[in-house]
Amino acid sequence: MIGLSLITMKTRHYTHLWFVLPALLVYGLFVLYPTLSAFWLSFYDWNGFGNQMKFVGTKNFQEALTSSIVYRAAWHNLIFFIALFIFQNTVGLFLATQLDARPRLVEVYRAILFLPVIISLVAVGFIWSLMLSPNIGFLNPLLRAWGLGALARPWLSDTTWALPTVITVQAWQSLGWSIVIYLAGLQNIPQELREAAIIDGATNWQRFRNVTFPLLAPAFTSLTVLTFIQIFRTFDVVYVLAGPIGSPAGATDVLGTLIYRTAFGVTTMTTSSSRFSYAIAISVVLFVVLGLVSTLLLTQLRRREVQS
Protein backbone atom coordinates (compact mmCIF):
# COMPACT_ATOMS: atom_id res chain seq x y z
CA MET A 1 0.00 0.00 0.00
CA ILE A 2 2.74 2.39 0.98
CA GLY A 3 4.82 1.23 -1.97
CA LEU A 4 2.03 2.01 -4.45
CA SER A 5 1.44 5.50 -3.19
CA LEU A 6 5.17 6.09 -3.37
CA ILE A 7 5.19 5.29 -7.05
CA THR A 8 2.18 7.43 -7.88
CA MET A 9 3.15 10.48 -5.87
CA LYS A 10 6.74 11.31 -6.59
CA THR A 11 6.84 14.16 -4.17
CA ARG A 12 9.62 14.82 -1.73
CA HIS A 13 7.09 14.27 1.09
CA TYR A 14 7.36 10.55 0.63
CA THR A 15 11.01 9.95 -0.22
CA HIS A 16 11.82 9.42 3.46
CA LEU A 17 9.52 6.38 3.45
CA TRP A 18 11.73 4.64 0.92
CA PHE A 19 14.36 4.49 3.62
CA VAL A 20 11.90 2.92 6.06
CA LEU A 21 10.56 0.37 3.60
CA PRO A 22 13.27 -2.35 3.72
CA ALA A 23 13.23 -2.43 7.53
CA LEU A 24 9.44 -2.40 7.54
CA LEU A 25 9.30 -5.39 5.19
CA VAL A 26 11.69 -7.46 7.30
CA TYR A 27 10.02 -6.35 10.54
CA GLY A 28 6.56 -6.94 9.14
CA LEU A 29 7.36 -10.42 7.89
CA PHE A 30 9.36 -11.75 10.83
CA VAL A 31 7.87 -9.84 13.80
CA LEU A 32 4.46 -8.34 13.02
CA TYR A 33 3.08 -11.23 10.98
CA PRO A 34 3.96 -13.89 13.60
CA THR A 35 2.51 -11.61 16.29
CA LEU A 36 -0.77 -11.21 14.43
CA SER A 37 -1.01 -14.91 13.67
CA ALA A 38 -0.39 -15.58 17.36
CA PHE A 39 -3.38 -13.39 18.24
CA TRP A 40 -5.45 -15.22 15.65
CA LEU A 41 -4.31 -18.68 16.80
CA SER A 42 -5.17 -17.93 20.42
CA PHE A 43 -8.86 -18.22 19.52
CA TYR A 44 -8.40 -21.77 18.23
CA ASP A 45 -7.76 -25.15 19.73
CA TRP A 46 -4.59 -26.39 18.08
CA ASN A 47 -1.60 -28.45 19.22
CA GLY A 48 0.85 -26.63 16.95
CA PHE A 49 1.14 -29.38 14.35
CA GLY A 50 -1.20 -30.96 11.86
CA ASN A 51 -4.41 -29.57 10.45
CA GLN A 52 -6.83 -30.14 13.31
CA MET A 53 -7.88 -26.62 14.25
CA LYS A 54 -11.10 -25.73 15.95
CA PHE A 55 -12.39 -22.23 16.65
CA VAL A 56 -13.09 -21.98 20.37
CA GLY A 57 -13.58 -18.25 20.86
CA THR A 58 -12.31 -16.94 24.18
CA LYS A 59 -12.11 -20.35 25.86
CA ASN A 60 -8.29 -20.31 26.00
CA PHE A 61 -8.36 -16.89 27.63
CA GLN A 62 -10.98 -17.91 30.17
CA GLU A 63 -8.86 -20.90 31.10
CA ALA A 64 -5.66 -18.82 31.30
CA LEU A 65 -7.27 -16.22 33.54
CA THR A 66 -8.67 -18.80 35.94
CA SER A 67 -5.69 -21.17 36.04
CA SER A 68 -3.96 -21.28 39.40
CA ILE A 69 -0.75 -22.41 37.67
CA VAL A 70 -0.73 -19.26 35.55
CA TYR A 71 -1.22 -17.10 38.65
CA ARG A 72 1.48 -18.99 40.54
CA ALA A 73 3.93 -18.40 37.66
CA ALA A 74 2.95 -14.72 37.43
CA TRP A 75 3.37 -14.42 41.21
CA HIS A 76 6.91 -15.82 40.92
CA ASN A 77 7.63 -13.25 38.21
CA LEU A 78 6.33 -10.53 40.50
CA ILE A 79 8.48 -11.67 43.44
CA PHE A 80 11.40 -11.86 41.03
CA PHE A 81 10.80 -8.28 39.88
CA ILE A 82 10.29 -6.84 43.36
CA ALA A 83 13.43 -8.54 44.69
CA LEU A 84 15.53 -7.27 41.78
CA PHE A 85 13.97 -3.81 42.03
CA ILE A 86 14.97 -3.58 45.70
CA PHE A 87 18.42 -4.98 44.99
CA GLN A 88 19.11 -2.55 42.15
CA ASN A 89 17.91 0.45 44.09
CA THR A 90 19.88 -0.34 47.22
CA VAL A 91 23.05 -2.29 46.38
CA GLY A 92 23.24 -1.17 42.75
CA LEU A 93 22.58 2.47 43.50
CA PHE A 94 24.92 2.51 46.52
CA LEU A 95 27.78 0.99 44.51
CA ALA A 96 27.13 3.52 41.74
CA THR A 97 27.53 6.38 44.24
CA GLN A 98 30.78 4.78 45.42
CA LEU A 99 32.09 4.70 41.84
CA ASP A 100 30.82 8.24 41.27
CA ALA A 101 33.19 9.42 44.01
CA ARG A 102 35.87 8.50 41.47
CA PRO A 103 38.16 6.37 43.60
CA ARG A 104 41.42 5.30 42.02
CA LEU A 105 40.98 2.31 39.68
CA VAL A 106 37.38 3.34 39.02
CA GLU A 107 37.69 2.09 35.44
CA VAL A 108 38.90 -1.31 36.64
CA TYR A 109 36.11 -1.65 39.18
CA ARG A 110 33.50 -0.68 36.63
CA ALA A 111 34.90 -3.06 34.01
CA ILE A 112 34.83 -5.99 36.45
CA LEU A 113 31.36 -5.23 37.82
CA PHE A 114 29.95 -4.98 34.31
CA LEU A 115 31.55 -8.21 33.08
CA PRO A 116 28.66 -10.62 33.93
CA VAL A 117 26.22 -8.45 31.96
CA ILE A 118 27.80 -9.44 28.65
CA ILE A 119 27.97 -13.15 29.50
CA SER A 120 24.95 -15.15 28.36
CA LEU A 121 22.37 -16.20 30.93
CA VAL A 122 22.92 -19.76 29.73
CA ALA A 123 26.61 -19.58 30.64
CA VAL A 124 25.73 -17.84 33.92
CA GLY A 125 23.20 -20.56 34.63
CA PHE A 126 25.82 -23.28 34.06
CA ILE A 127 28.40 -21.54 36.23
CA TRP A 128 25.95 -21.30 39.12
CA SER A 129 24.40 -24.71 38.70
CA LEU A 130 27.90 -26.09 39.27
CA MET A 131 28.75 -23.64 42.08
CA LEU A 132 25.54 -24.58 43.88
CA SER A 133 25.53 -28.28 43.12
CA PRO A 134 25.05 -30.19 46.39
CA ASN A 135 27.94 -32.63 45.94
CA ILE A 136 30.58 -31.39 43.55
CA GLY A 137 29.79 -27.69 43.90
CA PHE A 138 31.71 -24.78 45.35
CA LEU A 139 29.50 -23.15 47.95
CA ASN A 140 28.53 -26.16 50.07
CA PRO A 141 32.08 -27.62 50.33
CA LEU A 142 33.34 -24.13 51.19
CA LEU A 143 30.71 -23.68 53.91
CA ARG A 144 31.64 -27.07 55.37
CA ALA A 145 35.34 -26.25 55.22
CA TRP A 146 34.63 -23.06 57.19
CA GLY A 147 32.65 -25.02 59.77
CA LEU A 148 29.38 -23.53 58.54
CA GLY A 149 28.13 -26.87 57.26
CA ALA A 150 24.75 -26.21 58.89
CA LEU A 151 24.12 -23.51 56.28
CA ALA A 152 24.85 -25.85 53.38
CA ARG A 153 21.73 -26.99 51.61
CA PRO A 154 20.65 -28.31 48.23
CA TRP A 155 20.08 -24.76 47.01
CA LEU A 156 18.31 -25.54 43.77
CA SER A 157 16.26 -28.54 44.87
CA ASP A 158 14.86 -27.12 48.10
CA THR A 159 11.37 -25.69 47.55
CA THR A 160 11.99 -22.80 49.96
CA TRP A 161 15.40 -21.83 48.62
CA ALA A 162 15.13 -22.52 44.89
CA LEU A 163 13.39 -19.30 43.86
CA PRO A 164 15.54 -17.00 46.04
CA THR A 165 18.61 -18.79 44.63
CA VAL A 166 17.52 -18.26 41.02
CA ILE A 167 16.78 -14.60 41.80
CA THR A 168 20.23 -14.22 43.40
CA VAL A 169 21.89 -15.60 40.28
CA GLN A 170 19.98 -13.11 38.12
CA ALA A 171 20.91 -10.33 40.56
CA TRP A 172 24.57 -11.35 40.29
CA GLN A 173 24.35 -11.18 36.50
CA SER A 174 22.56 -7.84 36.26
CA LEU A 175 24.21 -5.91 39.12
CA GLY A 176 26.68 -4.23 36.77
CA TRP A 177 23.88 -3.08 34.52
CA SER A 178 22.10 -1.12 37.28
CA ILE A 179 25.43 0.29 38.48
CA VAL A 180 26.34 1.56 35.03
CA ILE A 181 22.91 3.09 34.40
CA TYR A 182 22.93 4.88 37.76
CA LEU A 183 26.56 5.92 37.31
CA ALA A 184 25.71 7.51 33.95
CA GLY A 185 22.78 9.28 35.65
CA LEU A 186 24.97 10.49 38.52
CA GLN A 187 27.56 11.87 36.16
CA ASN A 188 24.89 13.93 34.40
CA ILE A 189 24.12 15.80 37.61
CA PRO A 190 25.71 19.25 37.50
CA GLN A 191 28.55 19.50 40.00
CA GLU A 192 27.39 23.00 41.02
CA LEU A 193 24.17 21.62 42.47
CA ARG A 194 26.00 19.26 44.81
CA GLU A 195 28.48 21.95 45.83
CA ALA A 196 25.63 24.32 46.55
CA ALA A 197 24.13 21.70 48.85
CA ILE A 198 27.47 21.21 50.63
CA ILE A 199 27.82 24.96 51.17
CA ASP A 200 24.27 25.06 52.52
CA GLY A 201 25.44 22.55 55.13
CA ALA A 202 23.44 19.55 53.96
CA THR A 203 24.56 16.20 55.33
CA ASN A 204 25.54 13.37 53.00
CA TRP A 205 22.16 11.74 53.41
CA GLN A 206 20.26 15.02 52.91
CA ARG A 207 22.27 15.70 49.77
CA PHE A 208 21.50 12.27 48.43
CA ARG A 209 17.83 12.38 49.42
CA ASN A 210 17.02 15.92 48.22
CA VAL A 211 19.48 16.61 45.42
CA THR A 212 20.95 13.47 43.91
CA PHE A 213 18.06 11.04 43.99
CA PRO A 214 15.42 13.33 42.43
CA LEU A 215 17.86 14.10 39.63
CA LEU A 216 18.36 10.40 39.05
CA ALA A 217 14.69 10.05 38.16
CA PRO A 218 15.29 9.43 34.41
CA ALA A 219 17.75 6.61 35.18
CA PHE A 220 15.32 5.21 37.75
CA THR A 221 12.50 5.22 35.19
CA SER A 222 14.52 3.44 32.50
CA LEU A 223 15.91 0.87 34.87
CA THR A 224 12.52 0.09 36.46
CA VAL A 225 10.63 -0.27 33.19
CA LEU A 226 13.37 -2.29 31.47
CA THR A 227 13.76 -4.58 34.47
CA PHE A 228 10.01 -5.07 34.60
CA ILE A 229 9.86 -6.09 30.93
CA GLN A 230 12.97 -8.24 31.21
CA ILE A 231 11.80 -10.12 34.30
CA PHE A 232 8.30 -10.82 33.03
CA ARG A 233 9.81 -12.31 29.88
CA THR A 234 12.57 -14.20 31.71
CA PHE A 235 13.27 -17.74 30.57
CA ASP A 236 16.95 -18.65 30.07
CA VAL A 237 18.16 -18.49 33.64
CA VAL A 238 15.23 -20.46 35.06
CA TYR A 239 15.42 -23.01 32.24
CA VAL A 240 19.12 -23.71 32.81
CA LEU A 241 18.99 -23.70 36.62
CA ALA A 242 15.62 -25.36 37.20
CA GLY A 243 14.59 -26.92 33.89
CA PRO A 244 11.36 -26.44 31.93
CA ILE A 245 9.13 -27.56 34.79
CA GLY A 246 10.52 -24.96 37.19
CA SER A 247 11.68 -27.62 39.59
CA PRO A 248 11.44 -28.45 42.40
CA ALA A 249 7.69 -28.93 42.14
CA GLY A 250 7.12 -25.71 40.23
CA ALA A 251 8.75 -23.62 42.98
CA THR A 252 10.66 -21.64 40.36
CA ASP A 253 8.06 -21.79 37.58
CA VAL A 254 7.72 -18.44 35.81
CA LEU A 255 5.54 -17.40 32.89
CA GLY A 256 8.40 -17.95 30.43
CA THR A 257 8.87 -21.61 31.37
CA LEU A 258 5.13 -22.19 31.75
CA ILE A 259 4.42 -20.91 28.23
CA TYR A 260 7.33 -22.90 26.82
CA ARG A 261 6.24 -26.09 28.56
CA THR A 262 2.60 -25.67 27.58
CA ALA A 263 3.44 -24.99 23.95
CA PHE A 264 6.15 -27.55 23.36
CA GLY A 265 5.68 -30.21 26.00
CA VAL A 266 8.17 -31.04 28.73
CA THR A 267 10.59 -32.69 26.35
CA THR A 268 10.88 -30.53 23.27
CA MET A 269 8.33 -31.03 20.53
CA THR A 270 6.28 -33.91 21.86
CA THR A 271 2.90 -33.31 20.35
CA SER A 272 1.10 -35.33 22.98
CA SER A 273 1.44 -32.90 25.87
CA SER A 274 1.64 -29.65 23.93
CA ARG A 275 -1.30 -27.27 23.92
CA PHE A 276 0.00 -24.69 21.59
CA SER A 277 -2.89 -22.27 21.23
CA TYR A 278 -3.52 -22.26 24.97
CA ALA A 279 0.15 -21.33 25.49
CA ILE A 280 -0.26 -18.58 22.91
CA ALA A 281 -3.28 -17.26 24.80
CA ILE A 282 -1.21 -17.04 28.01
CA SER A 283 1.49 -15.14 26.13
CA VAL A 284 -1.08 -12.81 24.58
CA VAL A 285 -2.36 -11.98 28.09
CA LEU A 286 1.25 -11.44 29.17
CA PHE A 287 1.87 -9.14 26.19
CA VAL A 288 -1.23 -7.05 26.90
CA VAL A 289 -0.44 -6.77 30.62
CA LEU A 290 3.20 -5.90 29.86
CA GLY A 291 2.09 -3.21 27.43
CA LEU A 292 -0.42 -1.69 29.86
CA VAL A 293 1.82 -1.80 32.93
CA SER A 294 4.89 -0.51 31.07
CA THR A 295 2.90 2.40 29.65
CA LEU A 296 1.46 3.14 33.09
CA LEU A 297 4.88 2.93 34.73
CA LEU A 298 6.44 5.13 32.06
CA THR A 299 3.78 7.85 32.23
CA GLN A 300 3.65 7.88 36.05
CA LEU A 301 7.42 7.86 36.47
CA ARG A 302 7.95 10.47 33.76
CA ARG A 303 5.45 12.72 35.51
CA ARG A 304 7.52 12.37 38.67
CA GLU A 305 10.60 13.39 36.68
CA VAL A 306 8.92 16.56 35.49
CA GLN A 307 7.78 17.53 38.97
CA SER A 308 11.17 17.09 40.58
Binding site: V20, A23, L24, Y27, L29, F30, V31, L32, Y33, P34, T35, S37, A38, L41, G48, I229, F232, R233, F235, G256, I259, Y260, A263, F276, A279, I280, S283, V284, L286, F287, L290, G291, S294
Partner: peptide, 23 residues
Protein backbone atom coordinates in the same frame (compact mmCIF):
# COMPACT_ATOMS: atom_id res chain seq x y z
CA UNK B 1 5.81 3.97 12.20
CA UNK B 2 8.18 4.84 15.05
CA UNK B 3 5.64 3.61 17.60
CA UNK B 4 5.07 0.49 15.51
CA UNK B 5 8.77 -0.37 15.59
CA UNK B 6 9.22 0.60 19.24
CA UNK B 7 6.31 -1.57 20.39
CA UNK B 8 8.32 -4.58 19.25
CA UNK B 9 10.25 -4.24 22.53
CA UNK B 10 7.22 -5.55 24.42
CA UNK B 11 6.43 -8.64 22.36
CA UNK B 12 7.24 -11.79 24.34
CA UNK B 13 9.23 -14.01 22.02
CA UNK B 14 7.41 -17.08 23.37
CA UNK B 15 4.30 -15.73 21.66
CA UNK B 16 5.77 -15.35 18.18
CA UNK B 17 8.25 -18.19 17.97
CA UNK B 18 5.95 -20.95 16.73
CA UNK B 19 4.13 -18.87 14.10
CA UNK B 20 7.65 -17.82 13.11
CA UNK B 21 8.72 -21.45 12.89
CA UNK B 22 5.77 -22.21 10.59
CA UNK B 23 6.52 -19.13 8.48
Amino acid sequence: LYVLFASGMLIPVQMTVLPLFIL
